[in-house]
Computed example of a mutant assay.
Amino acid sequence: MTNQHSPDVVWHQHNVSKKARANAKGHRKPAVLWFTGLSGSGKSTIANALEQKLFELGYHTYLLDGDNVRHGLNKDLGFNDTDRVENIRRIAEVTKLFVDAGLIVMTAFISPFRSDRQLVRQLHAVGEFIEVFIDTPLAVCEQRDPKGLYIKARAGEIKHFTGIDSVYEAPLTPDIHIKTDEMDIDACVSVILQYLQNGEYLIR
């Protein structure tokens, strides 16, 4: 999408910095944890469990879920490649604002294209974008099929379904690599928490 900004639109510099907002919330650094993976891989489940744990520890968080966002901000978008790109572009801008507010943000989106995820990374400062690959074999995702979407896709009732008739480009070098067919939810959350602690995003 082309930039429609007028030359008269100028970025307003806030007196309160991103670092100050993060520190006021008890974080060392704000960040977005970008969960990517096939439908049924466990993105939303793990992101939910992680947010609950961070909340219990006293951190300020927000979780952006793919289905929830399509009920409002992105309800005008479909699932063809063009709309998928725009879906991620809008979410990227939202995460940038949330990170600027000093939050630890989690997103649970299939986000199938590497180029889109790279653009999101480039939108954020170094260290603020953490790609979390929820790596689950297609066969396992189909077996789980919590929403019955794979059955519909195989029957031709849903078009442009990632993993069936639309490509998923797996991350080549994710910041965090989670294999949900080998780990339970608690173990997945522990791996991500350890990453945040090692990266000094958390104070306690």
Score class of each variant (00 low, 15 high):
residue 78 G to D: 10
residue 121 R to V: 02
residue 36 T to H: 03
residue 43 K to N: 09
residue 47 A to Y: 01
residue 113 F to K: 09
residue 89 R to G: 10
residue 159 K to Y: 09
residue 116 D to S: 15
residue 115 S to I: 15
residue 26 G to P: 06
residue 123 L to W: 00
residue 84 R to L: 12
residue 115 S to D: 15
residue 112 P to E: 03
residue 186 D to I: 15
residue 154 R to Y: 08
residue 30 P to Y: 08
residue 171 P to A: 00
residue 182 E to D: 11
residue 156 G to F: 13
residue 142 E to C: 01
residue 190 S to R: 15
residue 29 K to H: 13
residue 8 D to I: 02
residue 146 P to H: 08
residue 40 G to Y: 02
residue 186 D to W: 01
residue 169 E to K: 00
residue 105 V to K: 00
residue 23 N to Y: 10
residue 192 I to C: 06
residue 95 T to D: 02
residue 41 S to T: 02
residue 78 G to Q: 06
residue 181 D to L: 01
residue 187 A to D: 15
residue 19 K to A: 12
residue 102 G to C: 03
residue 73 L to A: 01
residue 141 C to Y: 02
residue 96 K to M: 06
residue 60 H to W: 10
residue 36 T to N: 05
residue 138 L to I: 14
residue 112 P to H: 04
residue 156 G to Y: 09
residue 141 C to V: 02
residue 65 D to F: 01
residue 161 F to Y: 14
residue 168 Y to V: 06
residue 194 Q to I: 03
residue 59 Y to C: 02
residue 90 R to H: 11
residue 138 L to Q: 06
residue 67 D to W: 11
residue 149 L to P: 01
residue 198 N to P: 03
residue 153 A to T: 06
residue 66 G to I: 03
residue 127 G to V: 09
residue 111 S to Y: 10
residue 200 E to W: 05
residue 11 W to S: 10
residue 26 G to R: 07
residue 149 L to H: 01
residue 77 L to E: 05
residue 82 T to S: 14
residue 100 D to G: 09
residue 130 I to M: 03
residue 104 I to K: 00
residue 42 G to Q: 07
residue 161 F to Q: 04
residue 49 A to R: 12
residue 118 Q to T: 12
residue 109 F to S: 08
residue 193 L to W: 00
residue 65 D to E: 13
residue 123 L to A: 12
residue 68 N to C: 06
residue 61 T to A: 05
residue 52 Q to E: 13
residue 163 G to Q: 07
residue 60 H to S: 14
residue 21 R to D: 06
residue 204 R to G: 13
residue 33 L to H: 12
residue 197 Q to E: 13
residue 115 S to G: 07
residue 182 E to C: 04
residue 84 R to C: 09
residue 96 K to V: 04
residue 51 E to A: 07
residue 140 V to P: 02
residue 37 G to D: 04
residue 121 R to E: 14
residue 68 N to R: 04
residue 58 G to N: 11
residue 132 V to R: 01
residue 113 F to E: 12
residue 129 F to A: 10
residue 155 A to N: 11
residue 36 T to C: 12
residue 186 D to E: 15
residue 103 L to M: 14
residue 18 K to D: 03
residue 63 L to C: 02
residue 189 V to P: 06
residue 69 V to I: 15
residue 124 H to Q: 13
residue 195 Y to P: 00
residue 191 V to W: 01
residue 46 I to H: 08
residue 130 I to Y: 08
residue 21 R to Q: 09
residue 152 K to P: 10
residue 120 V to M: 12
residue 79 F to C: 11
residue 112 P to R: 00
residue 73 L to K: 02
residue 18 K to P: 10
residue 70 R to D: 04
residue 98 F to M: 13
residue 10 V to G: 03
residue 177 H to I: 10
residue 57 L to N: 10
residue 38 L to D: 14
residue 26 G to D: 05
residue 94 V to L: 10
residue 160 H to G: 08
residue 141 C to A: 05
residue 90 R to S: 11
residue 104 I to P: 05
residue 29 K to P: 02
